[in-house]
Structure formats: C-alpha cells, structure tokens
Design a protein around this nucleic acid. Structure first.
Lengths: 228, 228, 228, 228
DNA sequence: GATGAATGAGTTTTCATTCAT
DNA sequence: GATGAATGAAAACTCATTCAT
C-alpha cells in the first residue's frame, strides 16, 4: 500500500515538475485521465480543507465537490489521511521548489535574498488559504492530525534551509556579509522574519501589506540595530 | 502535563479570577466554588487537548477527568468550542502577561530584550504541549476549528507587540538603538526570531537547544549583517 | 472495556441463574430497568439474527426493533460482536442448564438418559431459530465470524459432557451398562445421536418427528447391532 | 489449502465435467476452456472462503486470485451467492461420491461400514478448512447466509443416507445385524456418530485423534450398551 | 442545581454490481 | 466477449448535546 502510494506520488510529482517538453506524450490517455482526476480530487479537497479545516470536511463532501462517487475517491486515496498527506506533500514541494528557483535565478548573494523575499510574498499571496491550512493543521505536529506527514515535509524544509545557508556562507566568504551568526541560523532567521511580515499581512492586509521592497525586511538583518 | 504545571496554572488563574485589590472577599462561597470548578474543568481539558488534540477528545472524557457529570460541564461551557476558546484565551493571556512581566522587570532596554528572550524560553519549556496545541489547532485561525477564537487572542498579542515596540522606540530615543526600522516591526522581528529558535528546539531539542545566552538571538538584530 | 463487559455479563448471568428468591429486591429500580432494557435488546437481536444471520442484520436494525436509539445499543454492547457473544453465551448456558437439570432430576441412570433426551427435544422445539443460528454461525468456529466465542461455550459444553459421562460411568459401575466404550465417548455418542434425530426433525418435521419415546434413540445404543 | 488438495480437486472436477463415457469429445475447445475457467474461479473462491469465511472475502479478491477480471467472474456466476452455492454443491457431491465409493468397494456389510468410517476420516483430514466453512456458513441453512443452498445438498445427502440404509437393511436380511432400528435411522446414527468423533478431533486433534480402528466407533453401535 | 441515560445525525470505509470501452 | 473503472447503498461506530429525574 505504501509502495503504491509512493508511486502515485512520484507519478504526480514528476508530472508537476515536468517541463513542457514532449514527454507528456509518454502518458497514455488513460494515464492522463487518471492524473487529471486525481488532481480534481486534490483540488476539491484543498478548497474544502482550506475553508473548514481537516476535521470538518467529510470524504463525501470532497467526493461531491470533485463530482466523483465516494468509491472513486477511495480508489485514488486509501483513506482520508492519505489524501491529506498527498495534498500537503504536493503543495509543500511545489512551494519549496518555487522558492529554490527564486534563489537560483540570481548570481549575487544579496540579490538571491531579495529574490527569495519577493517570491515568498508571491507564493503566499497566491496560496493563502492553503498556507492557513498548513499552519493550522500540519505544523508543529508529531502528535498532530496526521502524524508522519511531517517527516517528509520537514526534510524538504531542512533541505531548503541548507541551500539558503549556503547563500549566507558564500556571502561571508566573499566578504559581502559579516560573520555575525551561523549561516544556518541566518537562514532560519530570514525565513522567520519574512514569515512574520506575512503573518501581519494575513491578519491585516491593508494595515500591513507585505513590503514591495525586500530591503524593508532585509535591512533588519543588514543594518546593525545596536549603536556601536 | 506535570504537577508543577498544574500548580502554575492554578496560581495564575486564581489571580485571574481575583481581579485587582482585595475584591476576593466580594465573592461568595458559592461563587468561589463555581470558579474553582470551572478551573478544574479547564485543567482537565487542557491536559487532554494537549495530549490528543481538540478533535480527539470528547466532552465525556473531559467531564470524566474533571470528575464532573457531563451535564455540569455543559452548565459551565455552552459547547465544546466555547470551552476550547475559554481555555486558549486564558492561556494566551497568561503567557502574554509573563512575557510582559519579563520586559517590565528591567530598566535598561537591552536588558528588557534579554529578559524577554529568556522568559520566552522558559514559558515554552514549561508548556510545550499546550503550545503545540495552540500551533496545531488555534493559530492562523478565523476559518479554523474554532472560528472567532482569534479576535481576542490577536488583540492581546497586538497589545504585547505594542509594549515591546515601545522598548525599541525608547531605545532609539536614547540612542542605544539605530533607527533601522519601525519599532513595531522590530518587535515583530524579535518575536519571530525567537519563535524560529524555539521551533528548531521543538523539532530537535538536542541538536538545536534554545540558547542560554540571549545575545545569540539578539546579535542577529544587533550586529549588521551587511558589510558597509 | 473488557472488565466492564465481564461485569455486565456476570450481572446478567447471575440474574439469569438467580432463583426466584428475594434477592431480586436487592436490585434498585435503576438496575432492574437496565437489565430489562438489555434483555429487550438481546431479544430483538435474537429474532433478527435467527431470521437473517449475523452478517445480514445491522446494528441499526437491532436498535430499531428493540426501539432504542443506536447509541443506546452501543452503551450496552461495545460492538456487534460483543452483542452476539453475549447473546450466544446466555443462550448456551441456559440450554446447558436445562439439560443438566433434566439429568439431575432423576436418580436412575437409564431414567437420566431418557430425561435428557426428552428435555433436549423440548429445548429444540422451543428454540429452533436460535439453534439454527448457533449451528450456522457459531459452531465449528475458530476462524469464524466471532472468534473467541467458542472458548467459553466449548468449556460449558465440555462440562456438560463430563457430567453426562459420569452417568455412564456410574451405570457401568452399577452393572446396568456394559463397558463398551469410554464414558466420555458414550456421552458424545448420545449427544450426537440425539442431534441427528433433531436434525432430521428440523429438516422435515412431519416426516421425521422427534421421537416421543426416548428409547427409540436409546435402543440404538442399548441393544447391540451386531449379532453375536 | 495445499497443493495436493488443489490437484485432488481438479482431478475430481474434471471428472465431474466430463460425465460418463467419452463424451469429452463432444465439448468444443471453447466449451472446455469455459469449464476450466469456471473451475479456476471456484478453486480461488474455495481457498479464500476456507481461509476467511464467506462474508470476509470480496468478489474482487476472488477475481484477483483466479486472475480474471471482475466482470468475467460475473459472466460465470450471476452473483456472490450463486458462486457460493455452486462451490458448495460441487464439494458436497464430491465428498458424497467419495463416501459412496468407499461403501461400494467392499462386499461385506461390516466392511462397508468400516470402509465408510475410514474414508470419512480421510475426507475430513484432507478438507478441514472447507468443512469448517460448510459447518460455519452453510449447514442447517435454508434461512442461512445463502438460502436455497440446502435443497440440492440435502437431496444428495438424503441419497447417500438411502444407500447406507441399504447396507444396514441388507445386513439385517443376512442376519449379520440385529433389527434394532429402522435402517435409515441407523444410517443417520452412524453418520452422526462419526461426525461426533470428527468434531472432537477438529477441536482437539491431539487429545481426540480420529480413531485408526473403525471399530472404536462401530462398537458403540455393535455391542449393546444395556446389560440384558 | 446536578446528573448521566438517551439520543441520532454524521463519519469513515467497504464492496457487490454495472456498463462503456 | 472480456475488462475494470466507476458507482453508491449500506454498514459499524462516535459523540456533542439534551432533558427527565
């Protein structure tokens, strides 16, 4: 069952990741249909979970919204938890890869950070409801709704932090940055700082818009607070 | 939830109930009893929710643990959601007031920040499971398990940030701090930074212990990252 | 849960076993009500199971027939299997005790056997549908619908065979019976022989009525088939 | 269900299908294929039902094990009950015919009975799990899981009893047996007696092995229990 | 006022069966 | 004729909530 799931996931994600090449032709119509159906189910589930939270959405509701019979839903996901995990994992990997892309598309270290902050804002803006869901039910888990979800997600998060830590390390090496803290901690710090701004924005979009200029956030790290 | 915790909680809440001055005398025995009963119910609920999460605890379980009849529980809280809200609100106010206390007990601005960081570590250490519960089910809510919870909690959170913003503002005025960002944003930044360290600690207490020395965190703000 | 069940069962069975003494007064009205309700549920279940078989009866159906809410049914029996076990165990013990009584009420060994055969006919006549249920779903189990049911039932059956074996042994000792086989096997033999007649009767009551005269059955054992 | 069993079954059933004489040639390849497929389905069903019981096996499982599509299964058997009936009927006829064979292969009446008892032990030993299935779900039915199963099975059983009754009648005629009871009842009696021994063996194979020597069972009928 | 028995709507999940390809 | 994806009715069981005692 586990194996099956992993394969489903891989197939799904490879499609996700796949560029617009000609590889799409390799999937038979049957397979493409399945993939589309699966995605329709995930989309329906996402809408409902986002709106009402995991425990307040029934499988019947999801099936109904996706316009499939309940049995069909269970053909694709062995149970509610499995569906939730697939949903979250897919989304996290998508977001992570967008942010990683934002870092990689620039050469200069400072530009990488700016690009990251901008991309993060965009990802949030485009996916608020999902992110709310993530924060409300998946984060800080272990004992959570869906235990086990975290392991894979944390891993991918850790990987992301590592790649951002490399940006800081390289900046320090090039003497662009002062060596004020462990690069990994700096990565965490920048992440949390941008989260804080996003949090404000989520709660009061008008009063606290996410800054257009990434330096609004970066300066908190860049300029020393303490007068020497 | 260990014994110490329960006592802390009780101590706090009796203060809560007491209100300012000697008004305690104004409560009749009847009223005091009710208050005690209510607290016993909340304590039981906290233990269970922390352990298993909101949706995996039944009202019967709570009533059982608190040693009251289910009907009595419903006399005090009109439904499960109401009970959950009351619980969370109480806890948040307690935490907020401990952190406010930590700030107020020092004169010097830098010391206030250090004291805050230390206190936050202690609050977390002493209340992990509650905090996990908060993050997993209450945070980023409004659309959440328990809609409406947020309003009061956000208000008290906002108040706290305001008082921390004053610390930064006053530090700037005294030329202790450079004016690198809006004081409110600095408050948010420090909060999020310490949260990030606590997050690391929660996920891997051994690998990422919460720093003994508050300056480990503060230096990320204090020292400028960017080489001038 | 197990403990609770056992207590329920004991309470139930002691009532079952209890003679018409004054002990009944010891039960509060509350307790008597519970017992009556429980019995109403078991009665409804018995009717339905007998008619349609274990797997073709739903808990809702049982609750409906007994005129209780489904939740109430689950207050009394933790699940469908538990209900079935309680039902079967109660019936088996009741039957066993009737047969044991039939044996004990006579002094003479041959009379004991006759009394047993008569009593068995009566028990069957009065409880066909139950017995059909027993044969169809509980017997020859181990891998059956309700594994574990057997242990207690087999035990009580074994005990019954032992007491019948004693009748044969005592008959042999008194030189009433020839020592043609192990008394336990003779008990088994008589049981199976009477079962065979009952089987015939069940399948074609008119063509093969269960014999009025117990000797019709007994003679198959009593008189030697083989010409010496 | 071991390999030997499957082969036995196949051998038997091909005979079944063949019918008497060389009619096998009359079946077209198409028809022979169908018959083989049908048998493969029944074999798979038998294995699964024996292992888990009627209600715990799904049609999909059966189709899967038989390596046919579910639709194909439904081409052969109009529903699950129909499949079950066909399976049981086939098995009963097989067993009945083996026992009839055992009787017919001897001349002497006493030897016929001995041969029957031995054969019955062998049939049981080789088919316990099926027999358990039969006892647990099919026996004493009509009102059972699968109503209607019984009619044909009872008919074949009746036929068998008739042929055994003839053995007793003929023995009486030859003055080998005393005329202690109706020959049909004697047939029933011997059947039930051997069942009882098999029952003991099924429940405790070590404690109550089915007797090597058929006379252990026969003597209960042969020798008179009652002292004259 | 306290109690806890009773309620029944609602949840997840399974599986026999159909029918378009 | 074979296939197996899709269906949806139905089952077991839970639990927030009510209300008669």
């Amino acid at each position: 069952m586990n194996k099956m799931n992993r394969e489903n996931r891989r197939r799904y994600l490879s499609k996700e990741a796949r560029g617009p090449g000609m590889e799409i032709k390799k999937l038979s119509r049957r397979e493409r249909d399945k993939l589309r159906q699966r995605q329709e189910m995930l989309d329906a589930a996402l809408d409902l979970f986002s709106e009402k939270g995991y425990h307040n959405v029934s499988m019947h509701e999801i099936a109904g919204k996706a316009e499939f019979a309940i049995g069909t839903l269970y053909k694709f996901f062995k149970n509610k938890e499995d569906l939730y995990k697939a949903l979250m994992l897919g989304l996290c990997e998508k977001f992570q890869s967008e942010l990683t892309g934002a870092i990689n598309e620039k050469q200069d270290e400072v530009e990488k950070l700016r690009s990251y902050i901008r991309a993060k804002g965009e990802v949030f803006r485009a996916n608020i409801s999902v992110i709310r869901l993530y924060f409300s039910e998946a984060h800080a888990s272990s004992f959570n709704v869906v235990s086990g979800l975290d392991f894979e997600i944390q891993k991918s998060r850790r990987e992301f932090f590592e790649s951002m830590a490399k940006v800081f390390a390289s900046g320090v090496e090039k003497k662009i940055f002062n060596n004020i803290a462990d690069p990994f901690l700096l990565a965490i710090a920048l992440d949390s700082l941008s989260n804080a701004f996003l949090d404000l924005w989520v709660e009061a979009p008008d009063k606290y818009p996410y800054p257009e200029d990434p330096d609004t956030i970066l300066n908190i790290l860049f300029k020393g607070l303490l007068v020497k």
